[in-house]
C-alpha cells in the first residue's frame, strides 16, 4: 500500500515534468509549425544554468529564478538568430537544423562546464520527508515539483484560453496572414511563444536536476519521451499533451516498479528478471503503437486549420 502510493506520486511527478517539456514542444509546433529537436538542449541548459546560478548566488530560489530567466533569454536569442529563418520550410529542414543545434549545444556544454556532470544540491527545507497521509512519508522536494508543475499547467491554460495574449497566440496558430494583416506583430509574438516554450523546458530541466545529475545529453532521452507524448496526445494540443504526459509518466514509473514482480508470478524468476527491464522500457512505445492503430491522429487531435 505504502509503496503503491509512493510510486503513484512518483509517476504523477514524472508525468507533470514531461508535460512541461511536451507543452513547450507542442506549443511551438502547433503555432509556428516548427519541429524543434533542440528543445531537449534547452532542458539541459536550464539544468546547467540552475546548477551554476545556485552555486554562484548561494541561494536555491534566487539561483532557480536566474536560471529560468537565462533559459528564456537563450530561447529568444535562438529564435531570432536561427530558428526564425526556418518557419515555413520543410519539416525535414527543421529536423536537420535543430539536430545541428543539439550537436552544438552538447559540445558547448562540454567546453564550458567540462565533461563531468554537475550536482544541484537541495536546500535543507526541501529535503525533509512530509507526512502526506498517516504513516506515509513523501519527499518534500517531489511534492514541490508536483505543485509547481500543476500551478504552471493551470497558468498556461489561463494564459492561452483566457487572456488577450493567448487569444493572439491561438489566432496566430489558425491564420498567420490574417492576424498579421490586422496589425499584430506576428514576429514578436512567435519570438515570445518560443521563449515561453524554452522557459518551460528549462523549468522541467532545473526541477529534475536535483533528482538526477546534471549531465550532457540529459535532454535527449527525455525529448524522445516528449515526442511519444505529443504523438499520443495529438500534435499541437496542450490538453492532449497533459493527458498523455500523465499517462506516460504513470505507465513508465509503475511499469518499472511493479512489472518485475508481476512477471515473476508468470515466468521463472530468472526469465522475469531478464525480461522485465526490456519490457518495462517498451511499455510506453507499445502504448503509442496501440494509440496509433486506434486513433492515428492522437487522443486529442488539434482541430486542423
Amino acid at each position: 500500500m505504502l509503496l503503491v502510493v509512493e510510486q503513484f506520486l512518483n509517476g504523477l511527478q514524472f508525468g507533470l515534468l514531461l508535460f512541461l517539456l511536451a507543452a513547450g514542444l507542442t506549443l511551438v509546433f502547433g503555432i509556428m509549425d516548427l519541429v524543434n529537436l533542440a528543445h531537449g538542449s534547452l532542458y539541459m541548459m536550464g539544468a546547467y544554468f540552475a546548477a551554476t546560478f545556485v552555486a554562484w548566488s548561494g541561494n536555491f530560489i534566487i539561483g532557480i529564478l536566474l536560471a529560468l530567466g537565462a533559459t528564456l533569454l537563450l530561447g529568444i536569442v535562438l529564435e531570432v538568430v536561427a530558428l526564425r529563418h526556418l518557419y515555413g520550410r520543410d519539416h525535414l529542414d527543421h529536423v536537420l537544423a535543430t539536430f545541428g543545434l543539439i550537436l552544438f549545444f552538447n559540445d558547448l556544454v562540454r567546453l564550458v562546464w567540462g565533461p563531468a556532470g554537475l550536482a544541484l544540491p537541495l536546500p535543507g527545507w526541501l529535503t525533509v520527508p512530509v507526512q502526506i497521509i498517516p504513516g506515509v512519508f513523501y519527499p518534500a522536494y517531489r511534492l514541490a515539483i508536483i505543485s509547481v508543475a500543476l500551478a504552471v499547467a493551470l497558468m498556461l491554460y489561463i494564459v492561452v484560453m483566457r487572456t488577450r495574449l493567448g487569444m493572439l497566440i491561438r489566432a496566430g496558430a489558425s491564420n498567420r496572414e490574417m492576424i498579421g494583416a490586422l496589425g499584430i506583430n506576428i514576429k514578436l509574438l512567435y519570438t515570445l511563444v518560443f521563449g515561453l516554450g524554452a522557459a518551460l523546458a528549462g523549468l522541467a530541466g532545473l526541477m529534475e536536476a536535483p533528482i538526477l545529475t546534471v549531465q550532457i545529453g540529459m535532454g535527449e532521452n527525455i525529448l524522445i519521451l516528449a515526442f511519444v507524448i505529443i504523438v499520443i496526445g495529438g500534435i499541437g494540443s496542450i490538453r492532449g499533451a497533459f493527458v498523455a504526459a500523465i499517462l506516460v509518466g504513470m505507465i513508465d514509473t509503475l511499469g518499472r516498479a511493479f512489472l518485475p514482480d508481476l512477471l515473476r508470478g508468470v515466468l521463472s524468476s530468472a526469465a522475469a528478471s531478464t525480461a522485465a527491464p526490456a519490457l518495462s522500457s517498451m511499455l510506453i512505445y507499445l502504448l503509442m503503437a496501440i494509440v496509433l492503430v486506434a486513433r492515428p491522429e492522437g487522443l486529442f487531435p488539434a482541430s486542423r486549420r
Binding site: 505529443i230 504523438v231 531478464t274 527491464p277 522500457s281
Partner: peptide, 23 residues
C-alpha cells in the same frame, strides 16, 4: 509527415532500450 518522423524515431529508440537490456 512529422508524425512519421517522430514515430520512427521513437520505435528505433525502443530498439535501443531493448538492446541495452540484453544483459
Amino acid at each position: 509527415g512529422v508524425y512519421f518522423i517522430m514515430i520512427t524515431l521513437a520505435f528505433a529508440q525502443m530498439a535501443y532500450y531493448v538492446a541495452s537490456g540484453l544483459s
